[in-house]
Structures are given as structure tokens and as C-alpha cells.
Design a protein around this nucleic acid. Sequence first.
DNA 1: TTATTATTCAACAATTATATTGAATGATTT
DNA 2: AAATCATTCAATATAATTGTTGAATAATAA
Lengths: 228, 228
Amino acid sequence: MSSENPKRALFAAFAEIAKALGHGARLEIIELLAQGERTVETLAARCGLSVAGASQHLRLMRRAGLLASRRSGKHVLYRLSDPSVLELTTALHRVGEGNAAAVRDIVRGYFIDRDALEPVSRKELGRRLRDGAVTVLDVRPEDEYAAGHLPNALNIPLRELSRRLREIPKGREIVAYCRGPYCVLAFEAVTFLRKRGLSARRLEGGYPEWKASGLAVESAEAPRAATT
Amino acid sequence: MSSENPKRALFAAFAEIAKALGHGARLEIIELLAQGERTVETLAARCGLSVAGASQHLRLMRRAGLLASRRSGKHVLYRLSDPSVLELTTALHRVGEGNAAAVRDIVRGYFIDRDALEPVSRKELGRRLRDGAVTVLDVRPEDEYAAGHLPNALNIPLRELSRRLREIPKGREIVAYCRGPYCVLAFEAVTFLRKRGLSARRLEGGYPEWKASGLAVESAEAPRAATT
DNA sequence: TTATTATTCAACAATTATATTGAATGATTT
DNA sequence: AAATCATTCAATATAATTGTTGAATAATAA
């Protein structure tokens, strides 16, 4: 490991960390773990991986120092080892947005016209939360909501949105959020709500970014981990 | 490339960028390019690569959007495509320092006792530069110095330090810097100078970090690229 | 034009990473 | 203690990356 040249060894060690980020499934796992602890099974299901496959990716990332884990009963719960990991993925996103033509194309093509869905900044939402003039809508799955969410946020997972539309107070502007800047849930929720004639915008970033900014969060009674 | 699921495609695109960082030699190339433009030949020599090998690494990083290049006569000059690339490597370093045990071991083992070499912050050096009570010493090779350096810095490449010691004004504190936080040049310079009884400390980060902080820099007459 | 120089490309072997399968482990519950 | 469940490990085939060599380009100089 720490061979001849100390500098070479150091670069090699950093390269290991970068390699651990160098797989789509692993970045997806990191996005999920940014919401809170998760079991191997849950992560596998959410990312469309086999349990053994997920376990391998997780081991690799833990070795690289990106993740940590703890045992809780029969389950092993994985988490990001440190907030700096989220900063690293944010830096990766920024480079991708600025430079990689492939990313720009995907963002343009699929994330619809971003201008029309111009996000509400965290600062702005903070101000408007104090005025009470806005409904904050969390469109992530219930377990992610339970693990932590914005203050007074209403949780309606995206797939239930159509069915549970009446739960949303009328006449107030809606700000929807989900997992992060590249999570499609809030985009789709906003598009859907606007079609229904509601005034909806999405939050800049998602729950992890809000929390990382040091803003207030709430979570369900027991701070337990997601089960399914 | 941009297959079925847009989110998957996006993660895959980000993973490509991470992969492009996932090799020690490529991180070393990036550190060098953070000093300024370089030819393929120069990079190959500095990193101990064959020219063809360096060219392959460069192509890979350019495809990932990390680098850009331009032709100048017979030479092709590569550069970082954007300041966000430096931020990305900085984030990578931070994760490595915080988490990866391997990195901690290397830093402890080779970078000697960091406490004794506690760096001078950029802010502090800025203040002391205004007072004029400090000699700023650039220990990088001449061509890197020529491409850009701190205001009024004295350039004595590390390997010439012993020979040219008399060029350093007596009785003033010395602040040495080099390429960046994991460049050993300044460490070794400070260790050497202290053995000689001089009062020397090293700067936090190196030239690229100083410049990225928006602080003043100087460069040689013609803003030409390094030749060797 | 021809020769020279810097860089890129192509082809190959060697290594490393990935996906998949099924068995082994560790903790819990019956 | 046996059964169950979540996770990890091991083995394998496949695919991707790397290092190396030598030939092909592209720009300049003679």
C-alpha cells in the first residue's frame, strides 16, 4: 500500500476513494444513504441490485472510507461515514453540470425545461416558512420521510400523489422536495401539480442538502432506521 | 449512453467523471495542471509516464470533462477545464483525510509530524505580507514559478535550496509553498531550513489554492506555457 | 518536398472490476 | 438446539481498464 514514494502512495489512496465513486449504482446508494441509515436489503431493492451485489458495493465503499456500518439485530445499517462525503458528491455534480457534455444533454432532455421549474432556494423557503404562507411537500417514500424531513412538511409519496391530492391545502403555494438535486421525484410532482392548476415549485436540492445547511429538521418519534 | 432511466443515465455520467479521477497518475496530472497549462511531454516526464501513456490518461480525462486542451505549434497544451475540478479534488482530499485509514497512515508516516510543520493560513500570510515582515519562498521548479506565483515570492527550487541558501534574507521568517496540500516540496524545504537554524513555516495549500482564493498573483512577463 | 518533432491511435497481453450464483456466517426467534 | 433471516463470502465467467509497443497524424523546420 504505502510503497516507495509517499506522494505516489497518497495519490493512489485518493484514487481508491474516487474509484469507489466510479459506478452509477454506488452513487445511487450514496444518494439514498444521504437521507439516512439503510439496510443492505433496502438499498438493494431501491437500486435494483441483488442483495449480494449491493453488499459488494457497500463493502467496497466502506473500505474506501465513504461509508460506515453498524449492526442492529439481524440487520446491518449503512450510513455515510462523514458529511464530507456529501460535499464530495456535490462537487462531482458541479463538475458534471459545468463540463461533461453528456450530463448537460441528459439534464436538458429529461429534466424538462429547468427554467419553468426554477427552484426555490433554501434561504427563500426559510423566510416563507416563517410567514407560514407555504405548504412544504415531501414526495419521498414514507420511510425516508420518517427518518427525517423539513419542519411541518406534508408527506405524500409521489406515486400516491394523484390519489391523495385532497390532503393538500388549497390556495397556498406548494414547495416540493425529495432526495437531492438529481432526484426526479420533486420534478415530477411539480409537473403533476401544475397540470392540476396548483401553484407548485420545487426546492433547491433535497433533504440532505437542507440538513447539511444546518437548517431545522424534524423526524418521527423513535429515531429508528427504515425497515422497508 | 442516455438509456432507459434518466436518473440511471445521470448517475452513470457522474460515475464516468469519478472514474476519471480513479488513478494515481491522473490525480498527479491534475495537481500539475492546477499550476498551469502543460504539454503532454512535460506531464509524462513529471509523472514518470510514457508519452503515449500520458496521452491516454489525458484523453480519458478530457472526455470526462475534467480537462481541456489547445494546440500551440507542435505542442498540445492541456489545462483544467474549470475551477470546479480543483474543488472536486479538494473535496476528495478532505474525505481522504477524514476517513480513509490508509491516507491517515501515509500522512502520519511520511509527512513527518504535522504539528511541528503547522501551516500558515493564507489569511495570516496575507496580513504579514502587508507588514512586509516575511520572506515568501516558492520551492517549485522554475517553469511552474514562471507560470504564476505569489506576490514577491523568491523562487528557489527545492533541489537548489542547499546551494542557494545565501539568497534568502537573514533574520526574517520564511514561509515556503509549493504545488498544494499534498506536495512534499514545501515540507522538505521547511525541514531543511529549520535544520539550518532558520525560522521557516509552510503555507497552507499551495499556489493553486492561493489563486483559487482570489488572492493576488504575479507571473513572468509573457504568459506563455512551460517548455520543459 | 522531405525530415523532424509532438501527439495520438491501434493492437495486444496482463490486470482488475463486475455480475451472478450458491454456500457460509452471525444473530435472532421458536 | 433448530430454524429463520439478513448479510457476507467464494467462485466463476464476462467485461473493462491498464501498460506497452509501434505505427499513424499533424504541425513545423530544413
